[in-house]
């Protein structure tokens, strides 16, 4: 797989697993759902945080 698609594919799979998990059950399934959907958002936040222009940078 091309490098362009490696991370987007991983995030897409995590999102899919996250979306599906909570409908399949409670307890651990909910945690899988929350984690799977949290990671794509966390990646956005981390990229934004690390590259946000700061005064004096």
């Amino acid at each position: 797989m091309s490098g362009v698609w490696r991370i987007p594919t991983a995030l897409a799979l995590l999102s899919l697993v996250g979306l599906a998990a909570a409908i399949l059950g409670d307890g651990v399934w909910h945690w899988i759902c929350w984690a799977g959907l949290f990671i794509p958002l966390a990646v956005c936040a981390a990229k934004l945080w690390r590259q946000w222009p700061r005064a004096g940078a």
Binding site: P8, L11, A12, S15, L16, L19, L37, P40, L41, V43, C44, K47, L48
Partner: peptide, 16 residues
């Protein structure tokens, strides 16, 4: 760049 990053990272959710 923001459009590309946010768009591709949340694309599966947005599609569904």
């Amino acid at each position: 760049d923001l459009h590309n990053l946010f768009g591709v990272a949340t694309l599966t959710w947005a599609f569904v």
